[in-house]
Design a protein around this nucleic acid. Structure first.
Lengths: 148, 148
DNA sequence: CGTATTTGGTTCGAAATCGCACAAATGGAG
DNA sequence: CTCCATTTGTGCGATTTCGAACCAAATACG
């Protein structure tokens, strides 16, 4: 298998799929009861890029069908973690705002993960992760741009 | 943020989660109608490690509940891609065997992905992936060993 | 304008995921 | 051997995911 063989994509995606499952399990073990990974992803996204996004913007960002985003947002709303308000700029859509409790739950979850990550960092060479992260980001951006 | 901050785990897992979604979409676009990513993962796993595994072995390997594995295997069996036979060594369990058609479907899917990967390889520096792959493998093995 | 097309979001139904409970088989401890 | 805790797989029900159909609002275009 040559070094520039495109099938390295296959192997990389395979490893990534397994790591995703394992890391999701770590996250969900720290989430409050009733919340699952997609809920946290949304809270995290809104904190990162700023709230006031529309559901469709977020569905595109996560590459999920809009019906899935509707469902996830409904769950977050019922838990009082986000608030849906009409979009003054576009009568079709809504905008999603984090509640104070939503910000708290995100912060608390990240804090709860701290010890987990610290424990992982004891047995794994974190420098390799630091080196790998920009490649992952570039790959994510490339795949995101390449989807037609 | 210091270079050895454990929170690099958080960022790496975040990117990996998004890449997993995007790569899953690429795979499922090439799968025969009615098959989804978990089906292919099982075919791939049985080819790699050899068939004749028990459902529980596979559920553990994929870190999914055994009920999910039962469901996935039922789907593969209905499509004639795997065959379940009793386990002579243990009357409680079964063993899963690939059918000829199962091996074909896996091979055909990988072949169908070839052009996709070749296209991706045109716009992305594959050498970076080759470099990243061992780190991903090490991370996967480490997380797999670290789950209690 | 007036109409057609596109876009954002929800509802609905099918399939997937998964926790709980259960039966069958195993494997020890006494 | 008997009892009992453990393990494997499945049935069931609740939740999640997601495609199809639909409505309302916005946009394109004559």
């Amino acid at each position: 298998m040559r070094d520039n063989d495109p099938s390295v994509f296959f192997e990389v995606f395979n490893e990534i799929g397994i790591i995703e499952q394992l890391s999701r399990a770590i996250l969900e073990a720290r989430l409050p009861h009733g919340l699952i990974a997609p809920h946290f992803s949304v809270l995290n996204h809104l904190t990162r890029v700023g709230d006031g996004r529309t559901p469709m913007e977020m569905a595109r960002a996560f590459q999920v069908p809009k019906t899935s985003m509707t469902h996830t947002l409904k769950g977050l709303e019922q838990h009082g973690l986000v608030e849906m308000r009409p979009n003054p700029d576009d009568g079709r859509s809504k905008r999603v705002w984090l509640t104070e409790r939503g910000r708290e739950v995100r912060a608390e979850t990240i804090a709860a993960l701290g010890p987990d990550f610290a424990k992982l960092a004891q047995g794994f060479d974190v420098a390799q992760l630091v080196e790998m992260r920009p490649v992952l980001t570039a790959l994510r951006e490339y795949l995101d741009a390449a989807r037609d």
